[in-house]
């Protein structure tokens, strides 16, 4: 009986939280026209979420590409197909690894920053002060961060994939002596626009999910040091799970 009650309470709690998240996302979307009318607020958040994440994204892209180059060469040379390294690396990066790994890094770098910043604003009464100045904090604080994250994520994923291909080429061509002409021509021949569309669609979806989760967790954080810390942790966990689930769903849908 107690187990049933616990499960029921847990289910109600999860449903209430999902409903709250859906309503909050609706408020964010409703605030978009007003947010677009203040481009300076959005550009500041593109700088925070995008430009400040560039170093980690580029570094991760380079090493993921280099690992892909090494592993890909090791497998492909067993079948005498090492010249396909360029196409294999590029497709894997653009379709899958670029959007997913960028989204996971984005949640860890930009998402946590959004959550902790909004959470601390709440803990120091800055959000209440905005309310008292008749300024909607969702419109003024959350929506620009959401939009900034949404715009930054596909750009970061594209940069990740580009640097990743360069990393794979660095290892494949310069270290493993795959012919450079074959590497690039195979890549060009195998690449189709649908792979780019799929990668772009995924990175946009991940950008929406990660940014919405980050601002929602910050806005709903318990206004204490522990509350903000827990909200920041939830941002990383929930965003990562959401990215992986969305990735499977989109892959299945686009096959």
């Amino acid at each position: 009986m107690s187990l049933y009650r616990n499960l029921r309470e847990r289910a109600l709690d999860v449903t209430a939280k999902a409903g709250d998240f859906a309503l909050f996302t609706g408020r964010l979307l409703a605030a978009m026209p007003a947010t677009l009318a203040r481009p300076s607020l959005v550009s500041a958040q593109i700088y925070n979420a995008g430009a400040l994440s560039l170093v980690i994204i580029m570094l991760a892209g380079l090493f993921v590409g280099m690992v892909l180059g090494l592993t890909g060469y090791d497998i492909l040379q067993r079948y005498g197909s090492e010249e396909a390294l360029g196409s294999v690396s590029a497709i894997a990066l653009i379709k899958e690894l670029g959007p997913v790994v960028t989204a996971l890094l984005f949640a860890g770098r930009a998402g946590t920053s959004m959550t902790s910043e909004i959470g601390l604003m709440k803990a120091t009464d800055q959000l209440s002060a905005l309310e008292m100045m008749a300024v909607d904090p969702v419109r003024r604080v959350c929506a620009p961060r959401f939009l900034g994250g949404m715009i930054s994520m596909p750009l970061l994923a594209a940069i990740f994939s580009m640097i990743g291909i360069y990393g794979a080429q660095l290892v494949g061509v310069h270290l493993m002596r795959v012919d450079a002409g074959q590497f690039w021509s195979e890549l060009q021949a195998a690449m189709e626009s649908r792979y780019v569309r799929e990668g772009l669609l995924k990175s946009c979806a991940f950008g929406v999910a990660c940014s919405a989760i980050a601002v929602h967790e910050g806005f709903r954080a318990v206004p204490t040091a522990e509350g903000v810390s827990r909200a920041t942790t939830r941002t990383v966990v929930n965003s990562s799970v959401a990215v992986l689930i969305l990735d499977y769903m989109l892959t299945a849908l686009l096959l």
């Binding site: 604003m121 120091t124 009464d125 800055q126 209440s128 002060a129 905005l130 008292m132």
Partner: peptide, 13 residues
């Protein structure tokens, strides 16, 4: 038409 002074000031940092 109202103003409020918060305990810690609540200035936008």
């Amino acid at each position: 038409r109202m103003g409020m002074l918060f305990q810690n000031g609540a200035l936008l940092t």
